[in-house]
């Protein structure tokens, strides 16, 4: 029997994607992000487009490869999310 899937909020998914890019040194390809953030290809594409629109990441093309880099706003989001996560955790609130 498999464990029930844990619900992830939109903000949590954004954080997981951005955090994965941060762990890769601030720049990562879609495959790395896909595995790290545990998302399907379709959903990842949709979320990456939203993150670009929000100015949290930028898309960079090198020959035929695509990379995503964190912006300063993206780094700030990660830090703020970590603080909020620690705060919520102290009250037993999952986010």
């Amino acid at each position: 029997m498999t464990a029930p899937k844990e619900y992830r909020s939109k903000a949590r998914i954004y954080f997981d994607i951005l955090n994965q890019i941060a762990e890769e040194g601030g720049r990562a390809g879609p495959t790395r992000i896909l595995y790290g953030a545990n998302l399907s290809h379709d959903r990842l594409t949709k979320h990456l487009a939203q993150l670009i629109n929000l100015g949290l990441i930028v898309e960079e093309k090198e020959e035929d490869r695509v990379f995503y880099s964190l912006t300063e706003k993206g780094m700030a989001f990660i830090q703020e999310f970590r603080r909020i996560q620690a705060f919520a955790k102290a009250f037993g609130i999952p986010i």
């Binding site: 999310f81 909020i84 705060f87 009250f91 609130i93 986010i95």
Partner: peptide, 14 residues
Amino acid sequence: YAYKGYRISSASKL
């Protein structure tokens, strides 16, 4: 702080 957390995470408990 809790409100800021709610704005970012949309967690109703916050």
